[in-house]
Every structure is written in structure tokens, then in C-alpha cells.
Amino acid sequence: MGKKSQITYWCHEIIRAQAARGGIYIDATMGKGNDTLLLCELAGDAGKVIAFDIQKMALEETEKLLKKENKVEQMGERVRLIQASHQYMDQYVNPESVDVICFNFGYLPGGDHRISTKADTSIEAIGKGLELLKPGGMMSLCIYSGGDTGVEEKERILAYLKTLHPRKYTVICNYYFNRENHPPIPVFIFKS
């Protein structure tokens, strides 16, 4: 599979094309820091990035990547890496103040596969994230459904997204139509 057809590349291109610059951004599941790095680029000289993960390894990997790319020095306190679940993001920003929120559901690549996102807290975090988005803001969801709980989480997230009011949110769900073995599902939510 070529780089341009990978879910993360594709999601980043959509975010770059749609997101306001210099705003407030949340990486709800920082993993190895690739979404956090993208959000730091969008933040530029004026914006702010907050990234969450429950695993210390994710914070360490993200900090290493941001230092390598000089984002820690450039942004200083405007980038925060928080070891906490994404369901607590509403404790760090005000409602309707966030431009972009990124999620990657599943487990940390290279990490302990027994530690993964769970349907209940993921749906709670999506709901809180939608309240945090400002009108015109967007949310990116990369739904990986491998592993023991991934299929249930995928099905419950998709069922939840179907209930969102169509006048308040536009939900675009994409599929790798000809791939086997539970390919990831990229979803974009735009708040009216």
C-alpha cells in the first residue's frame, strides 16, 4: 500500500485542507506523536496543542518526536502532553474553543496490545470533543478494529455517530472497500 493511501496520510491531508490555522488543537490519542506533530504545525506561532494518552511510552515517544522536529523549543508551553484518558479533555479547554480534534482508536503501535481504547470511554470522549469543537471545527477519527475489543468499539462508535444531529454535524465515513482483515475506517466530523 502506497504512502498516500495510508489512513494517517490521508487524514492529515484532509485536516491540512480544512483546519483553521493558529487555533487550539487536541490530539486525543497521541500514540507516537504523528498527529501531535501535525497539530503543532497548524498551531504555528500563535496556536496551542494539547495531547492525551494513558501510556507513559506514548508521552515519551511523542516528546522525542517533537524535540527532533524542534516543536518543543518553538512552542514551549503552548504544547502540553498529558498522561490521562481522552475522556478528560474537557477539563483542559473551554466548550466551543477547539479547531481540530484527532483520534486514533485501538492500541499503541509497538506497545502493549492489551492496552487499547475502549468503546465506553471512546464514545464519551467523542461526545465531549464535539462540545469542545467551535462551529466550523472538525474531528478526525481513525478507527482501527483489530484486536480483541476493536470490532465492538468500531461498531459502537459508528452507531453513535449515526445518532448525531445532521443540522449540527456532518459525518463523513470512508471505507477501504477492497481490503481484508479489518482495515481502518477514517471518519471526519464537521461542526456547523
Results as ranks from 00 to 15, higher is better:
residue 1 M to S: 14
residue 1 M to T: 13
residue 4 K to V: 12
residue 5 S to W: 11
residue 12 H to C: 09
residue 14 I to M: 15
residue 15 I to M: 08
residue 16 R to E: 15
residue 18 Q to Y: 11
residue 20 A to P: 02
residue 20 A to V: 09
residue 21 R to I: 07
residue 22 G to Y: 06
residue 24 I to S: 08
residue 25 Y to P: 02
residue 30 M to R: 02
residue 30 M to T: 02
residue 33 G to W: 02
residue 35 D to Q: 04
residue 36 T to F: 01
residue 37 L to N: 04
residue 37 L to T: 03
residue 38 L to W: 04
residue 39 L to H: 01
residue 39 L to M: 07
residue 43 A to W: 00
residue 46 A to Q: 11
residue 48 K to Y: 06
residue 51 A to N: 05
residue 52 F to Y: 08
residue 53 D to P: 07
residue 57 M to T: 03
residue 57 M to C: 00
residue 57 M to N: 04
residue 60 E to Y: 03
residue 65 L to A: 02
residue 67 K to F: 04
residue 69 E to C: 06
residue 70 N to R: 13
residue 71 K to N: 05
residue 75 M to L: 13
residue 75 M to Y: 05
residue 81 L to D: 02
residue 83 Q to V: 10
residue 86 H to E: 03
residue 86 H to G: 03
residue 87 Q to P: 00
residue 90 D to L: 00
residue 92 Y to G: 02
residue 94 N to R: 15
residue 96 E to G: 10
residue 96 E to T: 12
residue 98 V to K: 03
residue 99 D to G: 11
residue 99 D to C: 15
residue 99 D to R: 03
residue 100 V to G: 03
residue 101 I to F: 07
residue 102 C to G: 13
residue 104 N to E: 10
residue 105 F to W: 10
residue 106 G to N: 06
residue 107 Y to E: 04
residue 109 P to I: 14
residue 109 P to G: 14
residue 112 D to K: 12
residue 112 D to G: 11
residue 114 R to Q: 14
residue 116 S to I: 04
residue 121 T to V: 11
residue 124 E to I: 12
residue 128 K to S: 08
residue 129 G to T: 10
residue 131 E to H: 12
residue 132 L to Q: 09
residue 132 L to S: 11
residue 133 L to H: 09
residue 133 L to Q: 09
residue 133 L to V: 15
residue 135 P to C: 14
residue 142 C to A: 12
residue 146 G to F: 00
residue 149 T to E: 09
residue 150 G to N: 00
residue 150 G to Y: 03
residue 150 G to W: 00
residue 151 V to I: 08
residue 152 E to A: 15
residue 154 K to W: 04
residue 156 R to P: 08
residue 157 I to P: 07
residue 158 L to E: 13
residue 162 K to V: 03
residue 163 T to K: 15
residue 164 L to Y: 04
residue 165 H to P: 02
residue 165 H to T: 05
residue 167 R to S: 14
residue 168 K to R: 12
residue 168 K to P: 00
residue 168 K to M: 06
residue 168 K to D: 05
residue 169 Y to A: 03
residue 175 Y to W: 15
residue 176 Y to S: 06
residue 176 Y to C: 08
residue 179 R to N: 13
residue 179 R to M: 15
residue 179 R to L: 14
residue 180 E to P: 08
residue 183 P to R: 11
residue 183 P to F: 11
residue 183 P to D: 10
residue 186 P to W: 09
residue 186 P to G: 15
residue 186 P to Q: 14
residue 189 I to H: 04
